[in-house]
C-alpha cells in the first residue's frame, strides 16, 4: 500500500461516520442482489454467502457525493464493520475495470481492526490517511476483531 497523504479534516467535514451511523446500509453479502467475487469466494468455502454478514456497505453517491481534493475518483463505497464482522480473502468484483484503487481509514488505528493486502497488516495509521493499492486487482481482506465499530472508505478510478 502506498501512502499518499492525510485527509483527516476532509473526513470531519463530510461527517462520514455520522452518516453511516444514521443511515441504513446494505448488509454484504447477505442483502446484495448481485453475484460478486465475495460471493464467489464464499461459495467455495463453508461461508454462506446468503446469510453471511461480513460488512455494511454504503455507496449512496446520489445522496452523499464525495470528492477528494486533488485526487481523481469515479466511485466510492463506505464500509461499516461491527465487532465480529470479517470479509473473506477476496478481490473486488470491479477489478477488471479499475485503474486505481484507494483505501482510507476513517478512524485512527485500533488493534483488532484489520486490513490486509498481500501479507501486510495495516497498522498505526491515522484517520484520513489515504493509501493507494500497488495493484488494483490485489487480493485483500478486512475485519473487525476489536471492540469498537470500524469505518473505512474505498475509492476507485476507472480505466
Amino acid at each position: 500500500m502506498i501512502y499518499l497523504g492525510n485527509y483527516g479534516d476532509w473526513v470531519d467535514d463530510n461527517k462520514l461516520i455520522e452518516y453511516m451511523d444514521t443511515h441504513e446500509g446494505v448488509m454484504s453479502p447477505r442483502d446484495q442482489n448481485h453475484e460478486n467475487d465475495v460471493k464467489n469466494v464464499l461459495h467455495e468455502t463453508s461461508w454462506n454467502s446468503y446469510t453471511s454478514e461480513c460488512t455494511i456497505q454504503y455507496n449512496d453517491t446520489e445522496y452523499l457525493p464525495l470528492e477528494l481534493p486533488d485526487v481523481k475518483t469515479d466511485y466510492y463505497w463506505l464500509n461499516k464493520m461491527l465487532p465480529g464482522m470479517c470479509m473473506p480473502w477476496h478481490r473486488d468484483s470491479n477489478s477488471d475495470t479499475v485503474k486505481v484503487r484507494y483505501w482510507m481509514p476513517l478512524q485512527d488505528y485500533e488493534p483488532g481492526h484489520i486490513f490486509i493486502c498481500k501479507h501486510e497488516l495495516m497498522v498505526n495509521y491515522k484517520k484520513g490517511d489515504l493509501f493507494k493499492h500497488e495493484d488494483p486487482s490485489q487480493y485483500h481482506l478486512a475485519g473487525n476483531l476489536g471492540w469498537i465499530n470500524r469505518y473505512t472508505l474505498n475509492l476507485v478510478e476507472f480505466k
Binding site: T45, S46, W47, N48, S52, P83, G84, M85, C86, P88, P111, G112, G143, L145, G146, W147
Partner: peptide, 9 residues
C-alpha cells in the same frame, strides 16, 4: 477455526 470464524482481541 473453520472458514468465517473470528476470534476477538
Amino acid at each position: 477455526l473453520i472458514p468465517s470464524m473470528v476470534y476477538p482481541k
